[in-house]
Design a protein around this nucleic acid. Structure first.
Lengths: 368, 368
DNA sequence: TGACGGGCTGAAAGCGCTTACACTCCCCGT
DNA sequence: ACGGGGAGTGTAAGCGCTTTCAGCCCGTCA
């Protein structure tokens, strides 16, 4: 039947076709589980493939199919616990789905525009994009759609596209309630990305919730109790030093990330102060390291965010190849938390929110 | 000259050829910096490429060239600070070299064999492999060579292939000297991978150096002072609890990794003990958080290991495409530390060793 | 009984590159 | 003046898949 040639290199689809006594077209269909292949044929092909230890050349498949089988995540940084945990979550889901995975750092608006507007990075290189804490313009969302690149976001929303994250105002509120509830009235804040249009939504929302909760209790937040910790350890340390050097320093500090809180811990130790007794310290994330330093924090399911975003993406990708209306929302086993159904976001995209929870440990205590 | 067709999709090499008035072959050569292209032609082609925002389709290039432009690292785990830091280092170098990068977890001998012996994972999928702390059989090394896959290792050596790492016996010696020097005589050890043939070289070497240094001082190491901490936090905590529960517990603990030491710290705190006063604790790595908990440790340049291994690999890859005898050892800017020239390892491969240094912080102190 | 349609399969045309190989100049040496 | 040779370029044959299209065979319906 099929013409047997080849013999040079690795085993190819032709070899399998010969062995199974069918054409390469049939092998291709059979092995990819496409319809219109008789069961008996499929079994024969699969047997031949196993026998010959055949595995398709991905480059050839990509070239022929015009899809890359790759998903890309764009994220403000590749190091740092939060980001790398999100990435790891997404990566796992993609791997399970048989997709290549690639992460690329987007530190500035320029980086973002270069990635999204220049063809060089996405075009023919990725099927889908996950943006983590990166604001994206409407016209860029449209441009991606036009180029056939699927989009899902974590943190900052994109018009009309699914977004996963937490209720950041809620985080601010919880922080204020916890600290004020302990009797603190002068509460410092460690934040970051101040006024950066690239990814300002998260800290802004947390602060909004924080201030609202405070003013609900009749407390005000004064600007001299806010410092920029840049969302990393060193920044957190510096910012803490600043706050403690103020004329009337805070008795408690709300750090918008655990990593900044670690820096704060360092600074407290240098000054001979004990967290939870001399100064209360509250973080956000529940970093894997937080239990080791006994840090009180507001836990969010970070890895889950990456997983969910990837699942959503994988799902819409699958829907392209095979546009049947069935299959469950998240495709991949991950599920939107029950009782917290995907709602419709400000911009019309489905939003997937997960719950946060306060984890009380040793670094917060009553005001003295 | 060249036949102008195409217009459907993205801009292809044909478009550039048309625009520059040359053939696709010339475009291909010019853009890849191959010789035998007149300077004037090259400039014209480059201009056309920029003008048309052309960027080659990687899948097509791979298929045609038969090389994947991908390097793979195989590593016992993808999480954990040590491994992810090595991966990050390697990744950076590969990205800079314009190579795709992919990491895959190898937790068991089976995983290893599946990866190395089955064609499915490497064949046509990667040009080079970096193995981190994974023992590899000689026949597997040969098999890779036969299949044209370059190999470099970190930690465990592979016959005839370059290996980068530290002198692990030295680490053990330093640990023993430091702790014994403080007057400790009953020193516990937290190790891992005990008797696991997959990656046992590192802990074994550290222990060898440790025991030798101890016996040089007339001290013996008793088996009841050794515990398996599995090289992670929880394991470290469990193992520490074991040691402290022994009839005559150690006054100092040598933890073969900082992460296990963090677990130890946790256990000490639970028992109301203070590290550095009640029990001395020494780690290895200088984990990014060690300074936060003030852990005394033996620092090794982990990221650098990944970088160096990747550089070596990138370099031998480059040498394949263009086998000129020139260019510096490490190709990519990374250098083997001066004064520590690449020597010849036990198995005949060049070994690149970096120095370790003891970082004294608060968790070790004199025996009481 | 014959037209029709659906299930299954095969032939062949690409996908966008890389790379032998062939060819054309033009500069040398003799 | 002529052959040799190297530099620069073009032609075209793939690389190993996917996918369109056409074709075959059968069961079904009128």
């Amino acid at each position: 039947m099929a013409g047997g040639r080849r013999s040079r290199g690795r085993t190819t689809i032709d070899d399998v076709a010969d062995a199974a006594g069918v054409s390469v077209a049939t092998v291709s269909r059979a092995l990819r589980g496409l319809p219109n292949v008789a069961d008996s044929t499929r079994r024969r092909v699969e047997a031949a493939a196993v026998e010959l230890r055949y595995s398709p050349d991905p480059a050839a498949a990509r070239l022929a199919a015009g899809r890359t089988g790759t998903v890309t995540v764009g994220i403000p940084a590749l190091d740092g616990w939060y980001f790398s945990t999100v990435v790891a979550g997404a990566e796992g889901v993609c791997r399970d789905a048989g997709l290549e995975f690639q992460a690329i750092g987007i530190a500035t608006l320029d980086d973002r525009d270069r990635l999204l507007d220049d063809d060089h990075h996405l075009e023919r290189r990725t099927d889908g994009l996950i943006l983590v804490d990166i604001a994206i313009e409407d016209h860029q969302v449209e441009s991606l759609a036009r180029r056939g690149i699927e989009l899902t976001t974590v943190g900052s929303p994109a018009r009309g596209r699914p977004v996963v994250g937490i209720d950041d105002e809620d985080v601010g509120t919880m922080a204020a309630d916890h600290l004020a509830g302990l009797g603190h009235t002068r509460i410092g804040v460690l934040e970051g990305f101040l006024g950066d249009p690239l990814n300002f939504t998260v800290p802004q929302a947390r602060r909004r919730g924080f201030e609202r909760a405070l003013s609900d209790r009749g407390l005000a937040i004064s600007d001299d109790l806010i410092a920029d910790g840049g969302f990393d350890v060193d920044g957190g340390q510096r910012a803490t030093a600043e706050l403690l050097d103020r004329p009337s320093p805070p008795t408690a500090i709300f750090s918008m990330s655990d990593e900044m809180a670690f820096g704060a811990l360092l600074e407290l130790r240098l000054r001979g102060l004990t967290a939870g007794r001399d100064v209360s310290l509250l973080g956000v994330d529940d970093h894997e390291f937080s239990r080791i330093v006994d840090l009180t924090t507001i836990r969010q399911p970070v890895a889950q965010h990456g997983q969910l975003a990837a699942s959503l993406l994988v799902d819409s990708l699958a829907r392209i190849d095979d546009p049947r209306p069935e299959r469950g929302a998240n495709g991949d086993g991950t599920e939107t938390p029950p009782g917290e159904p995907a709602s419709i976001g400000l911009h019309g995209g489905p939003v997937h929110r997960s719950d946060v929870v306060l984890v009380e440990r040793a670094t917060t205590g009553p005001a003295r």
